[in-house]
Design a protein around this nucleic acid. Sequence first.
DNA 1: ACAATCGATTGCTCGGTACAACTATGCACC
DNA 2: GGTGCATAGTTGTACCGAGCAATCGATTGT
Lengths: 173, 173
Amino acid sequence: MNAAVGERSPLGVPEGVDERWVTSDRIGLQLIRLIRLIERQRVIKAKKDGVERAAYVLLARLVIDGPHRSNALAEAVHSDPSTVSRQIAALVKVGYVERRPDPADGRACLLAATDEGHRVFAANRDLRNRWISDVTSDWDDADRERLVELMDRFTTALENHHESGATGAEEDR
Amino acid sequence: MNAAVGERSPLGVPEGVDERWVTSDRIGLQLIRLIRLIERQRVIKAKKDGVERAAYVLLARLVIDGPHRSNALAEAVHSDPSTVSRQIAALVKVGYVERRPDPADGRACLLAATDEGHRVFAANRDLRNRWISDVTSDWDDADRERLVELMDRFTTALENHHESGATGAEEDR
DNA sequence: ACAATCGATTGCTCGGTACAACTATGCACC
DNA sequence: GGTGCATAGTTGTACCGAGCAATCGATTGT
């Protein structure tokens, strides 16, 4: 019988579940908790921030991965092209991103972070990193490293799973 | 000499950063990636789902932690009372949650999941767990366990940090 | 008994996103 | 070399979720 259940798992766990179920359950609950909390933070921080917060993700992508075209960018961040289009427009307007013609295809344009964009992103990144560093101030670095490693693996697995068409209710069994 | 930088870290990393910065940076990037992806999944799954997805979090809370009053629930999930109020109203309407008078305070009411609510939540939970189990099908259980453990720690740290008033730009230095 | 208080709800607004229809421009095929 | 056509991107519209602020209602406690 599920010895592990009583100790960590909350109520509401049906009997007859195996350990794998329990762990999945805990992952799920942690995910919800984490996301809800981060979302909340975002709202709080949103006030003191000039630029569209959502657009930072795009800026980050451009800084880190280099120029993209708009559609590719959308795919990279799992967003709709229309969403990205508007956000990019905003970023261009404030001068953090510039449109350059794509040599490979005349009707496309490559988006690239400007110097100012780099600067702004770097500042933001630093802020965020300070915050994270702060939150995990009492962690040893091995654990932080492990967290990254596992999150990376998990997200990657998620990406693959979701790309392979299994959007949820599929079962191959 | 940031030996670790060249290997895993993306471009755009300024020189002179220490390893701690890099790890924080990677945590941040992973967080963004993960959240964005999950958000996306939510949209996709939202279609095939009758109930307000956002409300499931509340239902979960009620099932797992037992009855709450509305405001307490809001705080528990880091949401605004108004938001919770509406979501609860919806849950009550479909009969997943019931309002019971709070013996301790006449003007409050305790929210509790009904039997039907339990049932629906259990089904959903199972689905989600199957999905997570699927995504991590090639993980060994120790790693899944570790993921939970680290996420839990991280989220808890976040909660504490955010409760201790440090909402972001504060510095005690 | 009455005022202050506290719990919950409702009005309004906003940010972020998606879907779908549309535009336009270069591509590629004939 | 012209023309249909695919493709890149934009815009129109709608929706969802959330938050703030004001309000309603009722209780409690003086």
